[in-house]
Computed example of a mutant assay.
Amino acid sequence: MTEALKAPARGFERAEFEQRTAKLQQRMAQQDLDVLFLTTEPEFRYFSGFKSQFWESPTRPWFLVVPAQGLPVAVVPEIGVAGFEQTWIEDVRSWPSPRPEDDGISLLAEALTEFSRDHRRVGAMLGPETHLRMPAANFAQLEQMLGSRELVDISTLIRDLRSVKSAAEIEKIRFACEVTAAGFDYLLEHLRAGMTERQACKAMHLEMLRLGADACPYLISASGQGGYDNIIMGPTDRTLGDGDLLIIDTGANFDGYFSDFDRNYGFGRVDDEAKRAYEAVYQSTEAGLQAATPGRTTGDVWQAMWSVLEQAGALGNDVGRMGHGLGMQLTEWPSHVPGGDVLLQPGMVLTLEPGMSFAPGRMMVHEENILVTEDGCEMLHKRAWETLPIIG
């Protein structure tokens, strides 16, 4: 039995939050932003250090206000005030939530008004791949309270900052990846024909927890005779048998940071077409590894991977992208898409996820997690098997 892996330290030093906030405030100054506010868990945690499972409850809103100068201010329900003693946040303003008639909106408006007297510009996450974690009526109320102040979309600003990880963040992601890789190896040794998808996933889930993952909130699978055509719904109670192909895609979490990759397994007499498709996505990943260097673009990475799949006879790619950012969320900006113009930078953590339809109703997908370095990229975990592993 593999021993639990050595985990990195939990949390971050105060200096980490000071540096994140300083970088944010430099960008705010460039855009004449007096203040901004954050409402979603990853962004709130990124700048405050406040980590709580209470975000799972939709009842109460939480707000973090970041002025152009000085420390962030938390505007939070009274039930959460004590938790900020463990953070670097000193100014915590609260109200007795839930209070539907005014669930923190007046308090938030007061804080934003206090800090927005120069340019009268207030930032909020209003762009793609994000949302405001507050009722639409409350946001309309906030707009009214802010009067003539301009609300500015800061989603590009925030995602740019978060896309480059610190050394401490990288170590947490690396550990989550190593735990996941060990879980896949464990499953290779214990997977048998006659098991169901659900039994296979549960066995791997328990092993990842034993090895040190805090949670495995994302664990899906699909299977079928010689392939699969749906990779986002399982696991199911379908029994695995001769000729089947099984994919498991999972994201383990450690201290708030994710892994996200998959592995494929074959059972018995898998046809040659599926084996060739496996080899094609493996070689496509190799091309992605060569292309993922600083100064190249997400479009370059996509094209490098797609060229291999196209040459191998791919009928198409129905996923819409072939990889994405990774960190505090299972999927983060940017995406590897055709024509993507995001420049890769050292410190970015990305997935490479080539996928192909290799026959009608049959797919093959492969995914790995990488770190962009000064002169290329490196894997954050053990590489997948070069040929499709066959069970039984």
Rank of each mutant, 00 (worst) to 15 (best):
C177A: 14
T298I: 05
T298A: 02
G251V: 12
Y218K: 07
A22V: 09
H190T: 14
T293I: 15
V337K: 03
P67R: 13
L5S: 13
S335A: 12
P217A: 09
P61R: 13
D32P: 00
D260K: 03
P360F: 05
P338W: 00
T298F: 02
D34E: 10
F50K: 11
A4I: 07
G241P: 00
L371K: 06
F254R: 14
G147R: 08
S148Q: 15
E273S: 15
R133L: 08
T87F: 05
L344T: 09
A182E: 15
D260F: 05
R174L: 08
E85V: 03
R133S: 11
E378K: 15
V92M: 10
I390E: 08
L107E: 15
L191N: 05
M322W: 01
K165P: 00
Q30H: 07
S335T: 04
G268Q: 08
I105G: 10
V65F: 03
I390W: 02
E178M: 14
H381K: 11
I390K: 08
V66S: 11
G49C: 11
L24F: 05
Y265I: 10
W302K: 01
I390D: 07
E178S: 11
E110Q: 15
Y278G: 04
W385Q: 14
T387P: 02
S284F: 00
R117Q: 15
F267P: 10
P346V: 14
W62M: 14
P100K: 13
T196D: 12
G243V: 06
F358N: 08
R60D: 13
M322G: 05
G299F: 03
S221L: 12
G212P: 07
M125T: 13
D318P: 12
L132F: 03
A176E: 04
F267S: 12
R383S: 07
E353H: 02
T2L: 14
P294D: 09
F63D: 07
I220N: 10
D153T: 09
P8C: 11
H119F: 14
A7G: 05
I232P: 00
P61T: 11
V349D: 02
E110H: 09
V342Y: 14
S94P: 03
F139V: 02
G11C: 11
F184T: 10
I154Y: 06
P235W: 10
F47P: 03
D255A: 15
D185W: 01
R383V: 04
E16T: 15
D255H: 10
I248A: 04
M134A: 12
F139A: 02
L380M: 15
E374T: 08
E367K: 01
L108D: 09
V164W: 00
